[in-house]
Write a protein that binds this DNA or RNA. Structure first.
Lengths: 339, 339
DNA sequence: TGTTAGCACTCACCTCGGTCGAGTGCTAAC
DNA sequence: GTTAGCACTCGACCGAGGTGAGTGCTAACA
């Protein structure tokens, strides 16, 4: 007994129905609603086979069937092998991106918002990361007599700025001179390289010590994994779905959503694939035993990669989500490219 | 029949117990657990009086009593008239603030985090606002050949930075020269004043047009209400409490938490008081009919004011919350002062 | 006059048994 | 190979009865 065409069509109908209703689906439903030209009894036989093959689960003996993780996997792989961009999705995403966007963080916040409102699931957007960004410009801006703001511009946009203490003998012009020196010496370097070079450069300057300290810790902080800012949208969307009407489950899910770095490591994609779909146990996170995570990547002009993802119940509308993620990924890539 | 000392003690016991258990409290509980030296029958009589006075509600005839909003109000007013800083609270807050903090946004994010974890309720922190901040320094940092980052430092810290387009004939030195001019002319002005002055200044420069456009829209955006960044911590804490085990209620609460500006306007404090406590209907927000909102203010060195707040069920641990908010407010004020 | 013990009464909550209906598996007929 | 029919299973729903926490009232007591 193998998996033939007809079995597959039936399985697909079951998945579609279950995704919409969250109710175990019975043979009669399929034969009536999906117009297969088969009676419920026949469907029943096929469903029995599908269960034996591991594609269906039966919560209890007389409750209809629900798709297993394996079924979703099959379904998704199928989706991935065919083109999936609905054209109306494309325009919906575009419409949401009107209006000027400013900084990276605004962009990814906005993206998460849009993604969640389009899908009705929880959305996560990770900022670009990848090959170490290289310093383009470094500038010190006076804040008070003893403090300055360090702004580093990298080839992938502004990384970060922070206030550091400086000697009070440095006025605006002196800071500008230092900025020029530092930019000249560090331009084209990665942050890690900068950490090493820094003592050599500041050693040659008079007012170097305080500066060195401040810059050093700043570089080191930012050289590490840059999952600083994770944007999350539609946290409470998960409560739309009956699988999370159990408060305890909702709680653990939502508090997972609050620990950004944990979330980032769950979402962040390993390989180079355009899409990743992890279903139920495949997520590797107990709190998400009956969630699926779908992610896509986008890239910036200089080859850095970011991830966007959607988290929802296993009975997720995979086709729609994949399509939206695809569009959104393109949109983001384009947006970062033109900077 | 008035409100005497004994009635008040009984009411207090009822509130305390209800805050801890969320279960309607009966006369027997009070007489046994709170050691009043009175029998349950006596307590019963008093409770009956308290109900008539409007301090207690009875969900149904044989279910014990729960405190009314009026009772919480009395209880809170009482708290406010006595010193309330537990010394251990103070040190707990301090301990959480170790480690260097960087920018305003980091600080308030962190504050929200700490506040929610100390109280186990949902915490909200609004950034300082108030008298228009005045420009201290303005600097343009080159980003690419046609774009520059504008950084404005105000007397209350960094306001914002954004990337604007500039003529491609402006190199780093030219930008610096412009920065110096702009700083000289605009220093001490508010953003609104700057919007007016800008054309006059840039009119005298060659490359003014593009710059003017960019700076103008930047100023205008930031001159408006600066509730840009609202920090929220412990969103899902509300699910700890049985009054929100109803999923529908939790949903509406949580989605309210996602609309930052709405939230900001709810939280933001009108008067000049150190503390505000709004109980149940006093919040004026239907979604929060059985929530209380407690807020406190902090202030920056230059007289700007920010708000910190905690949202929880009406049976909130007011004493603890007020105490923590007080400490946190001081801590934040101090932190912003020394900048 | 205030306090207390006792008692009848109320009502949410739990449990239990019964019914209902969706859905299955099996068998026999087409 | 497909379908109709039927017995069977089991969760969901409903209503009845029991339980217990808590009240109000009354009468007795200090």
């Amino acid at each position: 007994m193998g998996m033939d065409e007809r079995k597959f069509r039936i399985l697909q109908a079951i998945i579609d129905d279950y995704i919409l209703t969250a109710v175990p689906v019975g043979s009669r439903t399929i034969s009536k609603k999906y117009d297969m030209g088969l009676s419920s009894a026949t469907i029943r036989n096929e469903m029995s086979d599908l269960e034996e093959l591991g594609y269906l689960d039966q919560p209890h003996v007389s409750a209809g069937r629900i798709p297993s993780a394996k079924a979703y996997r099959l379904y998704v792989d199928q989706l991935l092998h065919q083109g999936l961009l609905h054209s109306d999705t494309e325009s919906a995403v575009r419409a949401h991106f009107l209006g000027r966007m400013r900084q990276m963080e605004d962009v990814i916040d906005h993206a998460a918002q849009v993604l969640s409102s389009l899908t009705n699931y929880t959305a996560v957007v990770l900022p670009p990361s990848g090959p170490q960004p290289r310093i383009r410009t470094l500038q010190l801006v006076p804040v008070s007599s003893t403090a300055a703001l360090v702004v580093i511009v990298t080839d992938s946009g502004i990384v970060r700025d922070t206030v550091i203490r400086v000697s009070d003998q440095l006025d605006s012009d002196a800071l500008y001179a230092i900025s020029k020196t530092l930019t000249k010496e560090l331009s084209g370097r990665t942050l890690n390289e900068a950490v090493e070079l820094l003592p050599l450069i500041t050693g040659r300057m008079q007012q170097g010590e305080k500066l060195l300290q401040g810059l050093n810790s700043f570089f080191q902080e930012n050289a590490g994994a840059s999952h600083n800012h994770v944007a999350i949208g539609g946290r409470s969307n998960i409560l739309n779905y009956p699988e999370y009407s159990d408060t305890e489950k909702a709680r653990s899910f939502l508090s997972l959503m609050e620990t950004r770095d944990k979330l980032a490591s769950i979402i962040s994609q390993q390989g180079e694939m355009a899409f990743t779909v992890r279903i139920g146990p495949e997520t590797g996170v107990p709190e998400m035993a009956d969630c699926s995570i779908v992610t896509a990547t986008y890239s910036t002009g200089n080859g850095q990669q970011g991830t966007i993802g959607v988290i929802g119940p296993t009975r997720m509308q995979y086709d729609k989500v994949l399509s939206i993620l695809g569009t959104m990924g393109h949109q983001l890539s384009e947006m970062f490219r033109e900077d």
